[in-house]
Design a protein around this nucleic acid. Structure first.
Length: 480
RNA sequence: CGGGGUGUAGCGUAGUCUGGUUUAUCGCGCCUGGUUUGGGACCAGGAGAUCACAAGUUCAAAUCUUGUCACUCCGACCA
């Protein structure tokens, strides 16, 4: 899928639209509903694991970034800055009132660690106040040069979790928990296979001790970062003076973590699961699960019977998580509707016409492989069971398909010449060894545009570039 | 920020080189009415464009000149 097709698909299926400002996009109902579904699933898991939702302000005083300026390093070139507070209208033109210049510039949050830890420095006094397990659903702004809908927006919706703990052990425990939750969301709900590992020193989040990331591969051989988890250790608590008194009356710094994922996931879903006919949405996050299309002849003999069957199906799934849409617009031919809903990626399609009524069986077609099924609707329990089973199968099948693709596109390489050849032609993941040296990483990046997506495990080998002995097994890829 | 390209209706486009029958082309989409409906229907009618913006050259500018802006591709930056 090239860039043009990707954007066209998003516009055609009404997921999103362009706004007046470059890099800022309008999320339309269909696209926003997908985000809401992802959000609800993750939110439930976080709440169940004792996290609480909060909301911090959009604007952060510049001085807060000054406290730990190594952290803002990542963001200095992509900040939106608020400098004034008033407008003037003169001769029907609007001007910024120069007199309203703010004493201190305000940064529109690119991420919220600073304001959160500045706040908690005042709220935490005792070990009894810990752990802090909070999460924020919000928007952030990062003004980047190159944009791509969902994948790299200048403003995007995300979730940022922050935690504070009494010691390292507890913080690591939190990281393991979040890893488990993210893994479940990405694999079981979004049907996206991924690789997981630590970021290198160069690629990790500024201000973190280490960063874990979830990475996947799209159909054009480029990799996408799906989510990150940062172990902040005592970095932020030291700079922001977040300390507590422990049981032995000793003053200690808080250990913290942060973790996030964004609506980039929607971009990943589009890029990974789509085929020539359009989107294929994982059933668990699809706004509509079943589209029902009536086929009606010029003598309207069957309309009533068809409507009755539709009613019956709707009753069967009443109050369940299955959303059904009945498109009974008779001005549009069925073929047109087939194409439309295939493009939108609706997992199942039911067609009802003369044939179905005569045979007492309903035709159901899967979006992922177009297999046809004929189901008896007399026994509603069996019917319901079979539908639910089909949705599960789709969920699994698209995961397996993507997994196969990634496996096929992951190359084990131990020679740099081959590395360059693969990266310039096929793209994909390259599994190899790396000497953990910044210079090596930069040189490879300059020569091939490939970066280390993550360190997947400790294993002895020789660095692809320098030939030095190392124990870092890594995955390289070209990133969005 | 450096180099190339493009701006014509909601979208995609013809026309620009060589200024003039241009009342700006065609397709999709949209609206009205009718006939249709098992894989993108057809007929009839209709709405929709200060040709990106500004200035200039000219009897005459979508077309030529200059400037501005926006978008886009390739670099750089960035995850």
């Amino acid at each position: 899928m090239n860039s043009k097709d990707y954007i066209k698909l998003i516009i055609d299926t009404k997921l999103a639209f362009f706004s007046k400002i470059k890099g800022f996009y309008i999320l339309r109902p269909y696209g926003y509903k997908i985000w809401e579904n992802i959000k609800n699933i993750l939110n439930k898991m976080l709440i169940k694991n004792k996290h609480k939702n909060v909301y911090f302000p959009l604007l952060i005083p510049k001085s807060l970034f000054n406290i730990f300026n190594n952290h803002i390093n990542n963001f200095t070139k992509e900040c939106a800055i608020v400098t004034h507070s008033r407008l003037l209208i003169k001769n029907n033109n609007i001007y910024v009132d120069p007199k309203s210049k703010l004493n201190e510039e305000l940064i529109i949050r690119p991420t919220s660690e600073t304001i959160i830890w500045d706040t908690y420095s005042k709220l935490i006094q005792s070990y009894k106040n810990l752990p802090i397990l909070i999460n924020q659903w919000s928007n952030v702004v990062r003004l980047e040069m190159k944009n791509k809908m969902f994948i790299r927006n200048s403003e995007f919706l995300w979730q940022e979790g922050h935690s504070g703990h009494i010691n390292k052990k507890e913080a690591i425990k939190e990281i393991k928990l979040i890893k488990k939750i993210y893994k479940k969301l990405i694999k079981n709900y979004l049907s996206i296979p991924f690789i997981f590992g630590k970021k290198t020193k160069l690629e990790k989040f500024s201000g973190s001790k280490f960063t874990y990331s979830f990475e996947t591969l799209t159909k054009n051989g480029k990799s996408i970062q799906l989510a990150t988890i940062h172990f902040l250790a005592k970095n932020f608590s030291k700079f922001f003076n977040v300390s507590f008194t422990d049981k032995k009356n000793k003053k200690k710094y808080v250990w913290s973590t942060s973790w996030g994922l964004s609506m980039r996931l929607i971009g990943a879903i589009i890029m990974i699961h789509s085929d020539k006919k359009g989107l294929i949405l994982p059933p668990k996050i699809s706004p509509i699960h079943i589209i029902i299309i009536p086929i009606i002849n010029n003598n309207n003999k069957y309309i009533k019977k068809i409507n009755n069957i539709v009613k019956k199906i709707k009753i069967i799934f009443y109050k369940s998580k299955i959303n059904i849409k009945y498109d009974n617009n008779l001005n549009i031919k069925p073929g047109n509707k087939f194409y439309k809903y295939e493009k939108m990626g609706i997992p199942l399609r039911i067609t009802i016409g003369k044939r179905e009524i005569k045979n007492n069986k309903i035709e159901i077609i899967r979006r992922d492989n177009f297999k046809k099924y004929y189901l008896d609707i007399k026994n509603i329990f069996i019917f319901k069971k079979k539908i639910l089973k089909l949705l599960k199968k789709i969920q699994k099948n698209i995961y397996n398909k993507a997994k196969k693709y990634i496996k096929k596109k992951t190359f084990k390489v131990n020679n740099y010449y081959l590395f360059k050849k693969i990266m310039s032609k096929k793209g994909g993941f390259i599994m190899t060894y790396f000497d953990n040296n910044n210079d090596t990483e930069l040189k490879i990046k300059n020569e091939t545009k490939a970066t280390i997506r993550c360190i997947i495990k400790q294993e002895n080998g020789k660095c692809i570039y320098s030939g030095k002995k190392t124990n870092k097994k890594v995955i390289f890829g070209k990133s969005y």
